[in-house]
């Protein structure tokens, strides 16, 4: 059981790290603010979720697993909301780009 759990942990954390890497590359390489935000939030949420899930297999205590899930949920909630707010404030600040985005 513990061997199986270890394999699952390694796989899930590795895949999670790939999402973090993809998000970071997106942040550096994507041309404008909205696509960079898209890369960051989507990839980080999934990456953190996968890492939390992977770590959960190493924890015996159910209570700690609930806490871990709560951490992930709160991080997703905060990241999603903040991304929306940054995107909207950028739209207000760059009317030209904003018009293009709204028509698209």
């Amino acid at each position: 059981m513990s061997g199986f759990a270890n394999v699952l942990t390694v796989i899930l954390v590795s895949v999670g790290l790939v999402f973090f890497l993809a998000g970071s590359v997106g942040l550096l390489r994507f041309p404008d603010l909205h696509s960079r935000l898209h890369a960051l939030t989507k990839a980080d949420n999934l990456g953190l979720g996968l890492i939390a899930l992977g770590v959960a297999f190493q924890i015996g205590e159910p209570y700690a697993i609930v806490k871990l899930a709560l951490v992930w949920l709160l991080a997703v909630l905060a990241a999603a909301s903040v991304a929306q707010l940054i995107a909207r404030s950028a739209l207000d600040r760059l009317p030209a780009e904003g018009q293009a985005d709204r028509q698209a």
Binding site: L74, L77, A78, S81, Q84, L85, R88
Partner: peptide
Amino acid sequence: DGVLAMFGRLLPPI
């Protein structure tokens, strides 16, 4: 009905 209004009501109880 925006994101901030929703966030500002959802997170404080937590």
